[in-house]
């Protein structure tokens, strides 16, 4: 799904629906491909601002963004949010990622529904993915 469609869905969702969608995302985060596991186990690409051990690998090839991530199942909120970003941005162009709202978390209504104290880790992951897309696109 494109990020605009996801925003619209979340915008219309109440608290329980929001949790259900995030849970669904959490359960459907694609497994980290084998070739990245060594880097993860060595501690590379961890989003250090996030309390949960989140690992994100971003690549831009032929004008398309690829995102692979690993988040423990015991942290379903972060895992769900990362999976949402993978869904929205994997296969998108770097420009599409760049034009997504800076305040995506507010656009999704997560701050209001889940409580503002839980938002820092999520925005750290979001900013990290976007800056890596930017860097990776600039290299190509």
């Amino acid at each position: 799904m494109k990020i605009d469609e996801i925003i619209e869905l979340f915008h219309e969702a109440d608290y329980q629906e929001t949790l259900a969608m995030l849970l669904d995302y959490s359960e459907n985060l694609p497994e980290l491909p084998e070739e990245y596991k060594e880097a993860r186990d060595a501690g590379y690409n961890r989003v250090t601002e996030c309390e949960t051990p989140v690992f994100v690998f971003v690549d831009v090839k032929d004008g398309k963004v690829k995102i692979y991530a690993d988040v423990p199942r015991e942290s379903p909120t972060v895992r769900g949010f990362v999976s949402l970003l993978v869904d929205a941005f994997s296969g998108a162009t770097p420009e599409e990622v760049e034009s997504a709202p800076n305040t995506l978390i507010n656009s999704l209504g997560l701050d209001k529904k889940l409580g503002t104290r839980r938002m820092f880790g999520l925005s750290a992951v979001y900013n990290r993915i976007r800056s890596e897309v930017r860097e990776s696109a600039a290299k190509n």
């Binding site: 199942r73 379903p76 409580g115």
Partner: peptide, 23 residues
Amino acid sequence: DVLLYEVGHIEGAIKIDWQTDLQ
């Protein structure tokens, strides 16, 4: 984590969230 209860909980348990319910 606000979603942990939804992942699975003790049968019959009620969810009370410290942030969205109590504050």
